[in-house]
Design a protein around this nucleic acid. Structure first.
Length: 311
DNA sequence: CGGCAGGGAGGCC
DNA sequence: GGCCTCCCTGCC
């Protein structure tokens, strides 16, 4: 019993055993990168915690971290399927081959080859992207956080308290004035109206995902605060329509600069979106994520370099 | 301080 | 369909 003479080492041993303790489960993955997948801007439900990420928007709390080709995870309540949440069964090799039509996409894939499209819960995804209107990521995260802390359920997990996104019934307690005071601006009205519509059963994620993509997209747009772009985000990041191609200002710029596909197709979102699906194919959504992630990271690098030069 | 930003609504033609 | 204006807030 060597450790008896070395309390420090035994403390480290115990700590290590706890960190990789019995409560953590694991699965093996291929071609998957947790960080790229969760930090490329497609999800507001997953956020950084300790060595990994936490999601408390799914009726319980789930923690995940990556160690090489293994995912270690733990949930507060019932079992979870990381395969479903991270789309681990999407045929990534085939997808890469099909979408790698030119050098820019090849570079984008090489930049983050383990990036997968997320599959988030419908209501948190919907509300988060309504908040995203005319907004940047840090502020969207702040808004989602205040919705959780004010209207959402609480959980006890890994020795601390967690807040989850409210479901429609819980969020229905919010008023537009209240949300306005919380800093949501005119998005408060959108959230109240959309929550009412969901509560009334006017939109149902199970029905939507059974429809053809264009029908689901059209149905989503009937909700307040949901236009073409937000509808596409919900289609791609929650309903599993991999052909959905959300067009925001970043993607718009890239497509305009690097591709001719938007030039003859007219200015409307519907026509650009159709052109993108036509050109990139059934996995257009994956193309969008790879391009989006690559262009934004490169542009940030550029900005950082420029500010160093200025200093 | 004026301008601008990671959309959408509503009104108009 | 296409086009116009306004919108709450935060940051430069």
């Amino acid at each position: 019993m060597r450790f008896a003479y070395c309390p420090r080492a035994s403390a480290i041993l115990i700590f290590t055993l706890r960190g990789l303790g019995d409560e953590m489960q694991s699965i093996t993955t291929k071609r998957f990168d947790l960080k790229d997948t969760l930090e490329c801007g497609q999800t507001f439900s997953w956020r950084k915690h300790e060595q990994g990420y936490v999601n408390s928007d799914i009726g319980q709390v789930v923690y995940v971290e990556q160690d090489g080709d293994r995912l270690l995870y733990e949930s507060s309540d019932s079992s979870v399927s990381l395969k479903d949440m991270f789309r681990l069964e999407d045929p990534l090799d085939t997808i890469h081959q099909q979408i790698a039509k030119d050098e820019l996409i090849q570079k984008s894939i090489a930049f983050a080859p383990g990036l997968r499209v997320i599959s988030d819960d419908f209501f948190p995804c919907l509300i988060s992207f309504i908040c995203s209107t005319f907004n940047n990521i840090p502020r969207i995260q702040g808004m989602v956080k205040s919705l959780r802390e004010r209207y959402g359920p609480t959980y006890e997990f890994r020795g601390q308290k967690w807040y989850g996104m409210p479901n429609a019934e819980q969020l229905a307690l919010a008023t537009a004035t209240e949300l306005r005071d919380l800093g949501f601006g005119w998005r408060g009205d959108f959230i109240v109206k959309t929550t009412q519509a969901v509560l009334a059963g006017n939109v149902n994620p199970d029905n939507l995902s059974e429809m053809p993509y264009l029908n689901a997209h059209r149905e989503l747009k009937r909700l307040h605060g949901v236009g073409d772009k937000v509808a596409d985000c919900v289609c791609l990041f929650s309903l599993g329509f991999l052909e959905a191609f959300p067009i925001d200002v970043w993607i718009e710029r890239v497509i305009q600069q690097e591709y001719g596909i938007f030039t003859d197709t007219g200015k409307s979102y519907a026509k650009k979106s159709a052109a993108a699906r036509e050109y990139f194919g059934p996995y257009a959504g994956y193309t969008q994520q790879y391009l989006f992630h690559y262009v934004r990271c490169i542009s940030r690098q550029k900005c950082a370099e420029e500010s160093i030069e200025r200093a």
